[in-house]
Structures are given as structure tokens and as C-alpha cells.
């Protein structure tokens, strides 16, 4: 095994070095990038994406993809926004429970269709992507939830907290990341998720309930997208049926894939996903600093996805070749 192969294997290290190089280059080009404001922007931008990425990572590890998360986010945001209009005093904790539940149900619907009818999850969630988005319009009647509809205590969730005034969503997303890490790395169920993605046939033979594991991943993915809906309402102060969450699934998927989660299932880590999202966040903030128009963001993300996919395939190819199991 060459050094190159080892490097390929430890993907977290690879992405970390890319981040370091990128930051250094950006800082040299424009020192403004290293100010506290820039980094505050980075860490305000990522919690929303990061939370969704945790769920998406679980789904991708067990060999599926959920592209309906943007619509789930929008639906839960609209639901909670409409509730705020009725009950402005709704507590943050209850809001969290409600959005989580809404997302959970939608995720479970995805999981149910995928496991019951054995259709590729991308096609299924392409359907529910529209279905849920349509529901957003039906429920809201096309009306936007405005800044003054959202209570102050919810808005402040994304601005400050009791802890050194660190924004609440940042703390909360950090907690979710840590829990996801513990579940995926150290719990029995987490290891069963990896096993299912690594070899579903073997997982079934070993007595793992593959359907249950898959449903769990889709359920959690939906739940976290639902929670992200609350984050959205809190951070942006509005919810628009036609704008909120549109296309966000591709940013999330990009982050997960460049974080080293293999689309063929069975591998990926919370640390890698975090670094992947961090890189996207840094790029996002660095673009204006580097005088690159914001319109280029999507193209850059798209390019990153394609490169990451190609790299992933290259790694699989090299690993097979090393173990001598390559059959053309």
C-alpha cells in the first residue's frame, strides 16, 4: 500500500488539509477573511446544514439518498410558523418537539415506501420532494410567514444563549452532532446501520432487521430536517413556501459526500461530514471576500459533488485492486 492509498483511506485527513490550504490561501489573498466576523458568519451558516447532514449521512451510509429534505424543512417551518401566528407564546422546547415530530412522520413515509416497494430511494424522494412541497403551499395557502409573526424568543435562539452568548442553534446542533457520533460509532444500532450499508444480504443473514434499520435512518433524517425547519424560521425570520429549503438537499448531499461518506454505503463518519460541511461553509463565506460573485456558489458545489463522486469511485477501484479482487 502506497502512501497515496493510505491518504485516500483516511478521508478526514484529506478534507482537513484541503480546508487548511483553502483558509491559508484565502487569508493571504485577503486578510479580512481571518476576522472574527467572517468566522462568526461561517459558524452561523453551518448549524442548519449540519443538522440535516447528520440525518442524510445516516441514510447514505445505509445505501440510500433522501432528496426530499428541503421540502420537509419547508413543511415543518411552515407548520411551526402558522402555529406561532396562533400561539405566539409557544415555547422553544415544544416547538422543537413539534418540528421534530412533523419531520419524523415525513421521513418515515419516505422510508416506508422505499422498504415496502423496493424502489430506488432517489426516485421515491423525487416524488415526495414535490408532494411535500405541494403540501407546503396547500397548508400555507401560499402565504409567507413574516418576521413579525415569529416570536422574539425564537429569533434569539439563533443569536445568543445563556452560554457566553454563543447562538443557541450552534450549541444545539453541536449536541446533535455529538449524539449522532455516539450512536453511529458506539451503539449497537449504529454499527448495524454500517453493516446494513456495507452488505445488506449478509446483514439480513446475520439477523439484522434491515427494514427497521432503514426506516430508522429515514425517520431520523426526516426528523432532523424538521428540526432544521425551526432553525430556519429562527435564523432567517421568515418562511416562504416557494423559497425556503429549495435546493438545500444538494448542499447537504455535497457536504456529506465530500466528507468521505461513500455512496455505495457502509462507510462515512460524523467527523468527516462535519469537515465537509465546514468546508462548504468556509467557501460560502470566502466567495465574497475573494471577490467571486455569489452566483458561482452553486456551480462550485456541483463541481465538488462530481469530483467527490469520481474520487470515491477511484478509491473503491484502488482498494479492490489492492485486495486482488478486481474482475473486469
Amino acid at each position: 500500500m502506497t502512501l497515496f492509498d493510505k491518504f485516500l483511506r483516511i478521508r478526514e485527513l484529506g478534507i482537513f488539509s484541503i480546508i487548511v490550504v483553502f483558509v491559508i490561501v484565502a487569508a493571504i489573498i485577503d486578510p479580512r477573511f481571518m476576522t472574527l466576523d467572517s468566522w462568526r458568519a461561517v459558524f452561523l451558516a453551518i448549524p442548519l446544514i449540519l443538522v440535516m447532514a447528520m440525518g442524510q449521512m445516516m441514510v447514505i451510509i445505509c445505501r440510500h439518498v433522501d432528496i426530499s429534505i428541503g421540502s420537509i424543512l419547508a413543511f415543518s417551518a411552515i407548520v411551526i410558523g402558522l402555529l406561532y401566528i396562533q400561539f405566539p407564546g409557544l415555547s422553544l422546547w415544544l416547538s422543537l418537539v413539534i418540528t421534530a415530530f412533523v419531520g419524523l412522520v415525513m421521513g418515515l413515509i419516505n422510508g416506508f415506501i422505499v422498504t415496502r416497494f423496493n424502489v430506488h430511494s432517489i426516485i421515491v424522494t423525487l416524488g415526495t420532494l414535490s408532494l411535500y412541497r405541494g403540501l407546503v403551499f396547500i397548508v400555507s395557502g401560499g402565504r409567507q410567514i413574516d418576521r413579525n409573526d415569529i416570536p422574539e424568543h425564537v429569533v434569539s435562539f439563533s443569536q445568543t444563549s445563556f452560554l457566553f452568548s454563543i447562538p443557541g442553534i450552534l450549541i444545539f446542533s453541536a449536541i446533535i452532532v455529538v449524539i449522532t457520533h455516539l450512536v453511529m460509532r458506539h451503539s449497537v444500532l449504529g454499527r448495524e446501520i454500517y453493516a446494513t450499508g456495507s452488505n445488506p444480504v449478509a446483514a439480513h443473514l446475520k439477523g439484522i432487521n434491515v427494514t427497521k434499520v432503514t426506516l430508522f435512518c429515514f425517520g431520523i433524517c426526516g426528523m432532523l430536517a424538521g428540526v432544521a425547519g425551526l432553525f430556519y424560521a429562527s435564523r432567517f425570520g421568515y418562511v416562504n413556501p416557494g423559497v425556503t429549503g429549495v435546493g438545500i438537499e444538494f448542499i447537504v448531499i455535497a457536504g456529506v459526500i465530500i466528507g468521505g461518506t461513500s455512496i455505495t454505503g457502509g462507510s462515512g463518519s460524523v467527523l468527516g461530514t462535519f469537515l465537509g460541511i465546514l468546508l462548504l461553509g468556509i467557501i460560502n463565506v470566502a466567495l465574497p471576500v475573494l471577490n467571486i460573485p455569489g452566483e458561482f456558489q452553486k456551480a462550485i458545489y456541483g463541481l465538488i459533488i462530481v469530483i467527490a463522486l469520481a474520487l470515491d469511485q477511484l478509491i473503491i477501484y484502488r482498494m479492490k485492486k489492492l485486495s486482488g479482487g478486481l474482475n473486469a
Partner: peptide, 25 residues
Amino acid sequence: QSFSHLSVAENIFMGHMEGSNFSRV
């Protein structure tokens, strides 16, 4: 029938590890 991404020990004990879903391995 093995799980190529997991450790040898996990391959041996997968499916009958001690504890419920969320207990620590």
C-alpha cells in the same frame, strides 16, 4: 458474507452483540 467496512470483531459479533439498540457496544 462479510462487512468489508467493519472490524474483524464486529464481523464476528454482528447481529448478536450484547444490549439493546442504543446501548454502547
